[in-house]
């Protein structure tokens, strides 16, 4: 762990933002048929990728603010 002790805390913010962006990329790549599987209608608000991207956006903002 001695190597990491010299890494500034700010790197944590960079790392977490990168991980969230990676997650967002994975979410976007989910197919529409998979996302809507079992949904009674295919309205836009039922697109779960949109829900996940909103969550990721808020999280990135919170980690950048604090």
């Amino acid at each position: 762990m001695s190597f990491f002790e010299h890494v500034p805390v700010f790197s944590g913010k960079v790392l977490i933002t990168f991980l969230y962006l990676l997650l967002a990329f994975w979410v976007i790549k989910r197919s529409k048929s998979f996302i809507y599987e079992g949904a009674p209608t295919k309205r836009n608000w039922r697109d779960l990728r949109f829900w996940a991207l909103v969550l990721i956006g808020i999280q990135i903002a919170l980690y950048l603010i604090f």
């Binding site: 991980l19 969230y20 997650l23 979410v27 989910r30 996302i35 779960l48 996940a52 969550l55 990721i56 999280q59």
Partner: peptide, 10 residues
Amino acid sequence: AIPAMIVSAL
């Protein structure tokens, strides 16, 4: 919680 919940859901 949040990233894990997204992975769990999708």
